[in-house]
Simulated scan of single mutants.
Amino acid sequence: MSLFPLIAQPNTGELLSASGMPLYREVDWNFQTNKPVWRGGAPVIVTGARAVLVWAWNALHTTRFAHDVFSTDYGLDGEQLLGQAYTEDVRQSEAIRIVRETLRINPYITNVSQVSVSFEGSVLHLGFKLTTIYGEVTIDDCDIAL
């Protein structure tokens, strides 16, 4: 019996990636509305690089240590950037470091590059390129309220 009986469980099968890890699956995400994608009354399941990108988006939008349901490695610890007497260069450098640390815990992500950050008050604007075991994906416009 499923915890959510109205949502069918996806067929997990025995699909493995070239690295020997299971095929990554995630509920698709609309980055403009910041909500999951539903079709026909059920969430849309994506796999591969798109699924890893959805995981990255959600990890960056989750405050680290704020929810007991997540491990202590999951989420963005961006609050440490607020209220500090950092110069703008140091603040941006720290933001890039924190974003990379947040994303690199996922074993499906092999590299985080081209990270660009800027601040507008307590909102972090960022873009980045992820190299996953499935290929490269990018986010050009991601706003995170710290």
Score class of each variant (00 low, 15 high):
Leu53Met: 15
Ala49Thr: 08
Thr47Trp: 04
Met21Thr: 04
Cys142Asn: 11
Ser113Lys: 06
Glu79Gly: 13
Asp77Cys: 14
Val115His: 03
Arg100Cys: 08
Ser116Tyr: 01
His61Asn: 15
Phe128Tyr: 03
Phe119Cys: 04
His67Cys: 07
Val123Leu: 01
Arg50Ser: 15
Leu15Ile: 11
Leu16Cys: 08
Asp68Tyr: 15
Thr63His: 13
Ile133Cys: 05
Tyr24Cys: 09
Leu81His: 12
Leu16Phe: 11
Val117Lys: 02
Thr87Phe: 02
Met21Cys: 05
Asn11Cys: 10
Arg97Gln: 05
Tyr24Gly: 02
Glu120Gly: 04
Tyr24Thr: 04
Val115Thr: 02
Gln80Met: 13
Phe31Thr: 00
Val52Ala: 13
Ser122Ala: 12
Leu3Val: 01
Tyr86Ala: 06
Ile139Met: 14
Ile109Arg: 12
Thr131Ala: 10
Cys142Asp: 13
Thr12Gly: 02
Thr132Lys: 00
Ile105Gly: 15
Glu136Leu: 00
Asp68His: 10
Arg100His: 09
Leu76Ser: 15
His61Ser: 11
Met21Asn: 06
Tyr86Asn: 04
His125Glu: 00
Ile133Gly: 01
Ala85Ile: 11
Arg91Asp: 07
Thr33Ser: 01
Asn111Ala: 14
Gly48Met: 13
Ile139Cys: 14
Thr63Asn: 06
Gly48Tyr: 09
Ser71Gln: 05
Asp141Cys: 08
Ala56Leu: 11
Gln32Ala: 08
Phe65His: 13
Thr72Tyr: 14
Val112Cys: 03
Arg104Lys: 15
Ala42Trp: 10
Leu16Tyr: 12
Thr138Phe: 01
Ala56Pro: 08
Phe128Thr: 02
Thr62Ile: 07
Asp73His: 15
Val117Tyr: 00
Ser2Pro: 14
Asn34Gly: 00
Glu88Asn: 08
Ala42Phe: 11
Phe4Ser: 07
Trp55Asp: 11
Leu23Asn: 11
Arg97Pro: 02
Arg39Glu: 14
Thr72Gly: 01
Arg25Phe: 08
His67Thr: 10
Ala51His: 12
His67Arg: 10
Phe4Trp: 09
Arg100Phe: 04
Arg25Asn: 09
Val52Gly: 11
Lys129Val: 09
Pro107Gly: 06
Leu76Ile: 13
Val69Ser: 03
Ile98Cys: 06
Gly121Phe: 02
Leu53Gln: 15
Val90His: 03
Gly48Lys: 05
Tyr86Gly: 09
Phe4Met: 10
Leu60Lys: 10
Ile139Val: 15
Ala66His: 02
His125Leu: 02
Arg97His: 03
Gly40Met: 13
Tyr24Met: 10
Trp55Thr: 08
Gly75Leu: 05
Val52Ser: 10
Val117Asn: 01
Thr138Ala: 14
Gln92His: 07
Gly40Cys: 12
Leu81Pro: 05
Gly121Leu: 04
Trp29Lys: 03
Phe119His: 05
Leu60Gly: 06
Ile109Ser: 08
Tyr86Val: 06
Val44Pro: 08
Asn58Pro: 00
Val54Trp: 07
Pro43Met: 02
Arg104Gly: 06
Tyr86Phe: 14
Ala85Lys: 14
Trp29Tyr: 05
Ser71Lys: 06
Leu103His: 04
Glu101Asn: 15
Val99Asp: 04
Gly83Glu: 08
Arg104His: 13
Ile133Pro: 03
Leu76Lys: 09
Val46Thr: 14
Leu15Met: 12
Met1Gln: 06
